[in-house]
Design a protein around this nucleic acid. Structure first.
Lengths: 108, 108
DNA sequence: CCGTATCCCCTAAGATACTG
DNA sequence: CAGTATCTTAGGGGATACGG
């Protein structure tokens, strides 16, 4: 049964999620920070795929300005910076877990 | 509490999902086909953002070869082609719904 | 109506060098 | 350690024209 044209719901939401989290490493970064408790820049660089420093910086800054991450600079020497989830970031964790579980079950 | 390096779980799954569904229009296409019952090429072109014909074709072909869609050519004139979800595609719908609901609640 | 076939362009991401 | 500053590059996506 086909819906008529009037009843079709636009999906700004879905495309917005794509726009915000479509970056090559975004959800992987959120996964490591939120689900694996990895918070420091260097740790992330070692764990997130083959990402380069400049790309990691860029994606972190974008996630920060989109409200998913908080950046805490401890102002120590040697430098120490930790990235943690904001409330928005935390709210996304259940979604990420659903994605992960689906992948585990269907992408082998 | 920090996990030690040994206990950190790689997340091939999450990055694989990104790789497969990271295309600019992929999840939106799946949304229209699976949740709004839009199956024909022309309908999709009218509803999916500002996508061009060539891009739509490409993304549909990729979703097909990744096992999310089935392409049914009715061999009629004028041509009639319908895209439907495979079992894998159907299995992804609950995930998509979770994404959509999260977006509705958090991206206003 | 449902596509192909070309050509083109932009920008996300990478490579590399350097710094407080 | 955690970046910044440049420069370069690949390829995803767009524009357009054409075809069965």
């Amino acid at each position: 049964m086909r819906k008529n044209e009037q009843s079709i719901q636009r999906c700004v939401t879905v495309s917005t999620v794509q726009k915000i989290l479509g970056g090559k490493w975004k959800i992987e970064i959120l996964y490591y920070i939120g689900m694996q408790n990895i918070h420091r820049f260097g740790e992330l660089r070692r764990h997130v795929g083959e990402i380069t420093e400049s790309s990691l910086t860029k994606q972190l800054r974008e996630l920060e300005s989109d409200g998913f991450l908080h950046r805490h600079d401890f102002k120590e020497l040697p430098p120490r910076v930790e990235y943690t989830l904001t409330d928005l970031g935390k709210s996304f964790m259940p979604v990420l877990e659903v994605i992960r579980q689906w992948g585990e079950a269907n992408l082998k």
